[in-house]
Design a protein around this nucleic acid. Structure first.
Lengths: 330, 330
DNA sequence: CTGTTAGCGCTTTCAC
DNA sequence: GTGAAAGCGCTAACAG
């Protein structure tokens, strides 16, 4: 059924029906109600392609995940998508998905009003340029790094520092003074550089000998942790850049016949599903993804609907205390 | 730029241009090439809303995940979505996402040509009725159960039996004879009922005293496993319906001062991300998700494009051997 | 082979 | 307030 047939059942012109359905002022309240009720009764829904054609608006945004190695794990991606879909949905926007790894030529930008881009570590300004159609499509980038030099987009930056600081405070309170650091080895992660400063902020000093750029796999974490534990003055706690590395670090501790958290405490980062499941459950740093989604979508919709200028927002992380940290051994 | 302006730059009629762009036969090869090259040069892309309007086709399918408790974990969902997007994309279809938990009134069915529905355990025929618009929208359901009584949809059934049988064979080969079972307690899972038969198929007999409907969390798994281990004749191996339960079972074994897999072997199910990370890494049953995605989308597109009848396909699971199973203690 | 034209279903002037 | 009519950008049927 189209609007013509539908209008006939009401003995009204399509113009009036359209106005009623669009909640315009020039319709008598009585007519509007009549139209709305009939539409409900007959289950009439306007053809959205026709609406989009005439409106020049798609009421659709696309979630772009151009990399395989995201700042967010797959689990997080779903959580983020849930949030984005919900907030976008509240504003009448649908969500398209573009998981295409390594395809920086985004699809038809014509089809969507805006883009939510989940950045990988190595996302450059030039990538953004091509993904966003030279910045002509309103876009918001969710990134763990500082915004690349691409001012046409909005940014939601995940500030890893707040949660890490919290973690170090937690360890300091437990009496730890020698804290090791396991990094992912990925470029663009500035955490390693900031770590000494964060340590200082909670009253601890950082020993460069206790830092390793481990890698990405549990085994990378295990090997690097093994090195730290073999040191003459080994750390009593290890902070790992990812939960995956942290799980490897736990393996390493157990492997040397020691226990977590009895002998060595371990803190992870990301709060992946696995974090709650390893033995012991990992104390880890987590992102408030619902908030990230809300801020991202609202910034995007502001650009789309009111042509607002791009914004840069930062969202901090926080510590989730589970079972992998204990009082420092004396 | 629209097709009128574009046609002008070529001194052709919009009809000819449209035909060339649609790869119709009635265009001279020379003209076609000229049109294609110019389109490339000018970056002309036809307005897809107008195309959809006139075609009555959206070239869009929607991934529906109506439940929070899926048959697939979030990680799996992304993997499935990747597969679905890829296969759909090869056929020119875009992917909409609908993660809305507990909303069985699917959005505008008008907007999409078909639905890929990821079933939760409790998805009923009546749910499917409302999600698919009384079955008028081509749909394929990915389910771990037998197809509900809703013949309008295609089904991709995950046959958990093949992988579980493989797991039991693996355990039998390692000398295990007393194998415990930890279930999720969810209705609709027929595995518990089939378990004795699967045991028999690999030459083992099942002791009902070794079965527990544990629940969903690691702690549920831990407690249930603890019960089994406290039995006068405890199992030497435990099969858990989910990796989450399995991780709890591992905790239980360690808690009683025993080791995995030295004293007790544990097999999980689902191959979630966590499975590779727990200590020891879980031997578990996995789904061939890429195949599931391919079969689902191709069945769906057959219904959409050729009006093919719904199909029912079954895809088996397989065992991934890691470190949680060992030779049975003598 | 190419040009012309009538819709696809809707929103939005413009009259009344 | 409501109706009539002009497009939105495209495809397809019809001429030539």
């Amino acid at each position: 059924m189209n609007i013509v047939e539908f209008a006939k059942t009401l003995n009204l012109s399509i113009g009036t029906v359209s106005r009623a359905l669009n909640d315009r002022a020039e319709v008598s309240p009585k007519t509007r109600r009549r139209v709305l009720e009939k539409a409900e009764e007959l289950g009439f829904i306007r053809n959205s392609n026709a609406r989009r054609l005439v409106a020049g608006r798609n009421h659709m945004i696309r979630l772009e995940c151009p990399h395989r190695a995201h700042i967010l794990s797959d689990q997080y991606l779903v959580e983020l998508a849930r949030g984005v879909e919900e907030v976008a949905g509240e504003h009448g926007y649908d969500l398209l998905l573009h998981l295409g790894a390594h395809r920086f030529d985004s699809g038809d930008l014509q089809d969507v009003d805006g883009l939510v881009i989940v950045a990988g570590e190595e996302l450059t300004a030039s990538d953004l340029h091509s993904i966003t159609g030279a910045g002509h499509t309103p876009s918001v980038v969710i990134t763990g790094n500082a915004p690349p030099d691409f001012p046409a987009a909005s940014y939601v930056c995940l500030d890893t520092y707040t949660g890490v600081r919290e973690a170090l405070l937690h360890l300091a309170a437990l009496g730890h003074r020698r804290i090791g650091y396991l990094g992912s080895g990925l470029p663009g992660y500035r955490l390693r550089d900031a770590f000494p400063r964060l340590m200082a902020q909670v009253g601890l000093s950082f020993d460069p000998a206790l830092a390793r750029e481990a890698g990405l796999t549990p085994d990378d974490g295990r090997r690097a942790a093994l090195e730290l534990l073999a040191l003459p003055a080994p750390p009593t706690a290890i902070f790992a850049r990812t939960d995956v590395l942290a799980s490897g670090a736990v393996q390493a501790v157990l492997q040397t016949g020691k226990s977590v958290p009895g002998d060595v405490s371990v803190v992870g980062h990301d709060n992946i599903e696995a974090a709650a499941l390893v033995n012991p459950p990992l104390t880890t740093v987590a992102i408030a993804l619902a908030e990230v989604a809300t801020v991202a979508v609202e910034s995007l919709l502001a650009m789309i609907t009111t042509g607002a200028a791009p914004t840069v927002r930062t969202i901090g992380t926080h510590l989730i205390v589970r079972g992998s940290c204990g009082v420092a051994p004396v």
